[in-house]
Design a protein around this nucleic acid. Structure first.
Lengths: 187, 187
DNA sequence: CCGTCGTTTCAGAATTTTCTGAAATCTATG
DNA sequence: CATAGATTTCAGAAAATTCTGAAACGACGG
């Protein structure tokens, strides 16, 4: 590996973290490299930069494409495929959230649904099902919330984030206004 | 493994998913078993239920304790340690979020901060740093938002979730009111 | 203290995942 | 349609991880 020190540190860190994120080291490194690179890179650039085998890079890029985390770009007068990450970090966040949900949440949700359909055959199974129902409820709430907010445009989303916990103040205010209006109507 | 079918399916699924969640199969299974079990279990119960080695269970429990996902319970007149999961699923969610943040986000955040302190030595490094700054900004926003909302009590949180994307309506309303008040003041 | 019951540690075996190099496949162009 | 450049596939090597059984450890009652 032969990279400017700053870039190298970044790339190595992503490699390390890769395993905690459910992607392997090489994939993490490739992603990091593309993320900070000022221009699209082709597979051989990546081989040179990271010092891993050509085929490993090929597989890594394949996986990143499956994750929708890299984009294919074509450079004029060059037959080779070039790759970048989406420009906008918010876009990246969306993609990441979507993919993780698909891989880590949806399967569990569907298994839970299935198990909840079955008739419990004993006390123990009955209790188990009640627990599963709780979990199912929680996950479902979270995912519908997520489905909702993911549609928001970026500036809306940042506004929401900036608001943070103060949202509840707004909620209180709303309740108060609604209460007032209702009382007025009833009078 | 000798469990009621419903429980077995659940446990096996969690085992499978374990790897996608960064915990290993046995750990996932132990957790699932404790989650649906109507009473606390001791290590040997788990060995019997899952058919894995005693030491494997011991290590699994150790890891789950590190994750704060299981609780130690003592049963009167029994010297053995017994284990459960937190009763409240929301509590579990909080724990999970906290731990994942600690493991998956915080290290990256601190690396980014460190790299952003350094002086770039070239064009390429300069660009890389700009990209890192974008990522850092995004993560920081998210984490401060998270720090905010994690303090909310459960019912507040559910209210917020139920509201979903309609929060923005509320935001618009607020902006309107603020505008009115301001104009009134200026008049 | 000693023995018993329960838990933890740890070195190596088993398994799984990741990585490589060689060969196969693909594709644009002369 | 042959060829050269580029990419992908795949079987096995390398590395990492998970799991086990044996031994060490700890604590409590006698």
């Amino acid at each position: 590996m032969n990279l400017p020190p700053l870039v190298q540190s970044f790339v190595l860190h992503f490699g390390e973290m890769g395993s905690r994120w459910g992607i392997n080291r090489t994939v993490g490194q490739i992603y990091a490299l593309l993320y900070v690179s000022p221009r699209p890179l082709c597979a051989d650039d990546i081989v040179d930069a990271l010092g891993v085998s050509r085929s490993n890079v090929s597989m890594g890029l394949r996986e990143l494409q499956a994750w929708n985390l890299v984009l294919l770009r074509h450079i004029p007068d060059d037959r080779r495929d070039h790759f970048t990450t989406p420009e906008d970090v918010w876009q990246i966040l969306r993609v990441l959230a979507e993919e993780r949900k698909k891989r880590e949440v949806d399967p569990t949700l569907s298994v839970l649904r299935e198990l909840l359909m079955q008739k419990p055959g004993s006390e123990v199974e009955q209790h188990a099902q009640a627990r599963m129902a709780e979990m199912h409820g929680l996950i479902e709430r979270l995912t519908t919330w997520y489905e909702d907010v993911k549609r928001l445009e970026t500036d809306r989303l940042t506004a929401l984030l900036a608001l943070g916990a103060r949202v509840t103040k707004l909620l209180d205010a709303k309740d108060k206004v609604v209460g007032l209006v209702r009382r007025k109507k009833e009078a």
